[in-house]
Simulated scan of single mutants.
Amino acid sequence: MKKNTANKASYKEQRKLEAQKQQRTTRRLIWITVIFIVAIIAAVIIFQPKAAPVEIAYDTMPSLGAANAPVKIVELGDYKCPSCQYFSQQLEPQIKKDYIDKGLASFHFMNFTIIGPDSNTAALAGQSVFHQNNDAYWKFYDALYKNQGDEKVQWATPQFLVDLAKKENLPIDYDKLMLDITSKKYQNEVDAHNAFARKNQVNSTPTLFINGKKFDNSMDYNSIKAAIDKAVKGE
């Protein structure tokens, strides 16, 4: 009887040891699998091809700075967008001071009309002013954002936009501006801007493209500066 009890105890101990061994083997296999998967993910991240810069017709848009500047920055914006107002008043002047005025970058504007119907009206006005006088456009750009109304209210009417141009004493033909807005003369250009935004997965304004590469953190100047600095170095 004692012998049978001893055999049973030995058998249980053996099964316990085998189970522990199997657990250790299973844990090793799990860790090996995890390490293998992590290595594959890391390799994909490291060696995946970088997205090529998108082609942008810079000479068809309002521009600040030297045409041959090594860095080209495009803002996709909506004149009714409060964040775009902040960008135009707080961040764009810093970009101008640090890069545009030094010949390191040029700055361009493209419409992305996402707020309301009069976003499109304001865009038509901007395009009209640009086609009449590129320098006057930038005064209009500043004035539009400084006089921006509530985004939930349709304030960017043709009359408001023409009156604003007159108030700023822009050197343009005001009758032509009114006609261009009401006839939607440059609607094809605004539509092309919106199509560009959709094609390149732009989901908010303002969004920047720096040398053709989309940059989403457009509300933080330190991040913008770091991205422009990389572009200046050709990275």
Rank of each mutant, 00 (worst) to 15 (best):
K233S: 14
N68C: 03
Q127I: 00
V129E: 05
E18W: 13
I46C: 14
I114W: 06
L208R: 11
T205C: 11
D229G: 03
K21H: 06
A69F: 01
K139M: 05
F160Y: 08
A125D: 03
R198D: 15
E151G: 00
M110L: 11
P158F: 02
Q20N: 12
I210N: 11
L170T: 04
A57M: 13
S119D: 00
A9W: 04
P171N: 05
T26L: 12
L161G: 05
T121Y: 02
C81G: 06
V54F: 09
Q90M: 14
I100G: 00
N4K: 14
N211K: 07
K199P: 04
N200L: 08
Q132Y: 02
M1H: 12
S63E: 09
A136S: 10
K225Y: 06
P93A: 12
A9M: 14
N200A: 15
R27F: 12
K199G: 10
K12F: 07
E189S: 13
D163I: 02
Q48C: 09
T121M: 02
I46Y: 15
A69G: 08
A143S: 08
I46G: 12
A143G: 01
L76I: 11
V190A: 06
A6D: 11
F160R: 03
A19Q: 14
T157Y: 01
M178H: 08
P53I: 08
N217Q: 10
L208W: 10
A39C: 07
S119P: 00
V162L: 06
V129R: 04
N194C: 07
I32Q: 07
V153A: 02
A195V: 08
L17G: 09
A165E: 03
I56M: 11
A51L: 09
G234Y: 12
C84I: 05
Y86S: 09
I95F: 14
A69T: 03
I172L: 00
K139R: 10
Y174K: 09
D142P: 00
I41M: 11
A39Y: 15
Y99N: 00
L17A: 14
C84T: 07
V44C: 13
P53M: 13
Q85C: 08
L64K: 14
Y141S: 00
I114R: 01
S88Y: 07
I224D: 06
M219F: 05
T113I: 05
H108K: 06
A9P: 08
E55H: 12
